[in-house]
Design a protein around this nucleic acid. Sequence first.
DNA 1: GCGACATGTTTGAGTAAGCAAGCATATAGA
DNA 2: TCTATATGCTTGCTTACTCAAACATGTCGC
Lengths: 139, 139
Amino acid sequence: MSKYIESEVVVNVISIHNKIQKRIGGALSAHGIGLTEYLVLNQLYNTPTQKMRRSDLAERIGLSPSGVTRLINPMEKIGLVAKEDNPRDARVSLVTLSAAGKQVYEEAQVTFAYASVALFEPFEINQLSAFSELLKVVS
Amino acid sequence: MSKYIESEVVVNVISIHNKIQKRIGGALSAHGIGLTEYLVLNQLYNTPTQKMRRSDLAERIGLSPSGVTRLINPMEKIGLVAKEDNPRDARVSLVTLSAAGKQVYEEAQVTFAYASVALFEPFEINQLSAFSELLKVVS
DNA sequence: GCGACATGTTTGAGTAAGCAAGCATATAGA
DNA sequence: TCTATATGCTTGCTTACTCAAACATGTCGC
């Protein structure tokens, strides 16, 4: 098909990303959130303080700053996250995980894990670990 | 971070897909096409007849049928592909790769390969092959 | 302490897609 | 042969983003 194995890998990653989007995104809709919103909750949950600057969040989940603004506003309205000011720097706006957000995340995490396992069903743990390490380096 | 390795893999795939989108998509813009358009050309190029039904194309590149319509129309206008009727069935509309489209693809393929290699720079061929096989199965 | 540049966020306008509905054609059953 | 249903594509409307510009605040050199 292609001269370089790397090109092939890229095409395959795109393809699997489509499936992730459809299957996992679909599964998460049961919790009233989309895949990108899940990633936000995931980041906040796994941050010691459970709060983060909008631009850092953008960086972490691969969104533009304006994308974060538009994503977070509705999440704030339904109470999953809250806005907080940084007393040291009035430019920044911290996003914090609310109790409700935490709960939704913990529930959604289970769904996410199930759907992920289903997707990678045919593989062994050690294959997946190797895979994961590889991806982490590229990221 | 997460209880299941599979969840971790999914998050990492999403993350690398962001990079693919940005780096490879950016690189392809030098040829006047985006990543999705590249995938269309790639499919057509690698099909024996170099023509394909719109719905099959949609399936192959993970787009909805309407997405294909909206993607192909401009490509047809600039002459990368052409529309062809199926004499056996007037419902279907075949997409064919034009000579110009073929040329653009062959040039873009080089860019795509370079960018892909750059992305996976730190890895060995055999790691990547294993990786690629794994992805192919999931796909 | 003030001007110039740097950083963080939001807003306005545009783009790429999805879903659901519509339209055209094909096929199968009575 | 007509009617019902299935299939393929496109269109209208909505959503999730992006980029560039605007705006607000912070910092540095003098």
